[in-house]
């Protein structure tokens, strides 16, 4: 018995939640936020889909298998240490460079890539946990 109130609210809230999670992810290095918080908020949006629409809709929304997403996130996180290797610094040393974007030069670095990996891992693990708990 799916609540129609929840479904209507979800249609509005879930895009905002996902944008918020990406915002927290990118903001994480110098201000409160980061991969964990962003990942949990994104996972909570998927939890909302689960509660409002059901497990199949959540699987469709998720596109890929959550465990694969977690694995890919882990690979990205581990590989983010490698750019330092090519320069001759120890593994995982933070390399920052200025990226010319339409909004002006932005400081991007390997910790952001690591955070993206953590973000994907958290989403993958939490959603797979939710999937199994729904049995």
């Amino acid at each position: 018995m799916r609540s129609i109130l929840l479904q209507t609210i979800c249609r509005f809230i879930i895009p905002f939640l996902l944008v918020l999670s990406v915002f927290l992810l990118l903001r994480g290095h110098n201000e409160p936020g980061g991969g964990f918080a962003g990942g949990l908020i994104a996972a909570s949006s998927f939890a909302l889909i689960l509660l409002a629409f059901g497990k199949n809709e959540m699987k469709v929304a998720m596109r890929f298998d959550p465990k694969s997403i977690a694995g890919i996130g882990l690979v990205i996180a581990v590989l983010s240490g490698f750019p330092a290797f090519f320069i001759g610094e120890p593994y995982l040393k933070a390399i920052w460079f200025m990226l010319p974007t339409p909004l002006g030069p932005t400081k991007v670095g390997t910790p952001v890539i690591f955070d993206i990996g953590v973000y994907l891992v958290v989403i993958g693990i939490t959603v797979s946990f939710l999937e199994d708990m729904d049995e």
């Binding site: 298998d65 465990k67 590989l79 593994y91």
Partner: peptide
């Protein structure tokens, strides 16, 4: 570092190929 990194990378790779 490789001696620790290779197994962890393999584990991550195998998890992403879960299905």
């Amino acid at each position: 570092i490789f001696v620790v990194l290779i197994p962890l990378l393999m584990a991550a790779l195998l998890v992403s190929l879960w299905n």
